[in-house]
C-alpha cells in the first residue's frame, strides 16, 4: 500500500492564505474598520488595529461600543465563513487562487447577537477568537471572546445565532 505523498508545506500555506485573503478582502466594512485575520492551521484570530476613528469617548479615550460589537460580529461571521470555505478548499472543490466575491460561497447572515461589555476598550489593538458551538445545516451558534493586552482580562464577549447559506439558493 503506497500512501499519497503529502503536499509541500508552502503549497498548502499558499492555498489557505489565499482563501483567507479572498474571504476577508471581499467585505468592505471589515476593511474600513481595519480588521485582519491571523491564521494558525485552521484557527483564526481577528485583529482590530487601533485607529483614532474607533474612539467613542475622546475624553477617556475609549473604543466606541459599536466598534466592539462590529468587531465581535465580524469575528463570528468570518469564522463561520472560513470553516465553510476550508472544506471546499481542502477537498479541491474550489480553487483558492481564483476566488473573488462572485465565486466565494455566500456568507452566513446574523439572526441575533448579544454582546457583553466587560471592560472599557482601550485605545490600542484588540483581538478576538470565535468558537462555533453548533453548526447545523441551517443555523449556527457562535461564541466570541475579545481581549486587548491580557487574554485573561477579556474586554467583551458575545454569543450569536447565524443563518447558514443554503447551497440550493446559490
Amino acid at each position: 500500500m503506497i500512501r499519497k505523498r503529502p503536499e509541500p508545506i508552502q503549497i498548502v500555506k499558499q492555498r489557505r492564505d489565499a482563501a483567507l485573503r479572498a474571504l476577508v478582502a471581499g467585505i468592505p466594512f471589515v476593511q474600513f474598520l481595519g480588521i485582519a485575520f491571523e491564521r494558525h492551521g485552521d484557527e483564526l484570530t481577528a485583529v482590530l488595529s487601533f485607529d483614532d476613528m474607533h474612539v467613542g469617548n475622546p475624553e477617556l479615550p475609549a473604543l466606541h461600543g459599536g466598534v466592539t460589537a462590529a468587531f465581535l460580529e465580524t469575528a463570528a461571521l468570518v469564522e463561520l465563513g472560513w470553516q465553510n470555505l476550508w472544506q471546499e478548499i481542502e477537498s479541491g472543490r474550489l480553487d483558492a487562487e481564483s476566488l473573488n466575491p462572485a465565486t466565494l460561497p455566500r456568507m452566513p447572515k446574523t439572526i441575533d447577537i448579544t454582546v457583553d461589555y466587560l471592560r472599557s476598550g482601550l485605545p490600542r489593538d484588540a483581538y478576538a477568537r470565535a468558537r462555533v458551538n453548533r453548526s447545523g445545516r441551517r443555523y449556527a451558534s457562535v461564541r466570541v471572546d475579545a481581549w486587548q493586552d491580557n487574554r485573561m482580562r477579556p474586554m467583551a464577549q458575545a454569543t450569536g445565532h447565524f443563518l447558514m447559506p443554503s447551497p440550493s439558493a446559490e
Binding site: G26, I27, P28, F29, V30, Q31, F32, L33, H64, G65, G66, V67, A69, A70, F71, E73, T74, L77, P101, A102, R106, M107, K109, T110, I113, V115
Partner: peptide, 21 residues
Amino acid sequence: RLVGDPVTGVVHGGAVSSLLD
C-alpha cells in the same frame, strides 16, 4: 464602506449594531 456583502451591497450587520448602540 459600510457594505458587508459586496455582491448585494447590503450594509454589514456590525454597522447597524454601531448605529443602534
